[in-house]
Amino acid sequence: MSARPIATTRSAAGMPTGRLAVWWLIASEIVIFGGLLASYIMFRLAHDMWSEQAAHTSTAIGAFNTFVLLTSSYFAVLGHKAAEEGDGPKAARYLWYTFAGGATFLAVKSYEWTTEILHGYTIASNTFWSFYYTAAGLHALHVLAGIIIIAIIAVAARRNEELHRVELIGIYWHFVDVVWIFLFPLLYIAK
């Protein structure tokens, strides 16, 4: 593998290249989720009868998943702290906890969706459910991508390699968490 170009090591904007890029990535994600959720909110405000559909979502499961994501975010930031102190193995351990959180989230989500689909609430049954599955599905894809990257970074961090990446995946992971913080009331609480 070739070494990094000198361009990557410069930071004329006063910020390491990787962190800057992650923030731009997040800006582009904000508008993707923003467009979808803005559409959902417009529809939701105009269709009050959707609340009866929303009543079939499980607040308990949603709350549990929020708890799981918040906890995994907590571990991610502890991993960042450990990485900054130069303790690769400790950072890797925290990252694996984060990974476990993401995996739990996905497992719970699969259980939840299976139940709902078996009860007849599929993506095509109503536009509320279409938004429900599309928004949560898009978010779940981000969780999936996140835990794969976390695993890759954790393996390297254990060997004290590329420790700055622990912070980068952390920022991304917190963003995924923030998206869920908004999805939870939008899809579950507001009945």
Partner: peptide, 10 residues
């Protein structure tokens, strides 16, 4: 980057 998001969702 800032304009394409809604269309990706769309």
């Amino acid at each position: 980057m800032l304009s394409v998001g809604p269309l990706i969702a769309g």
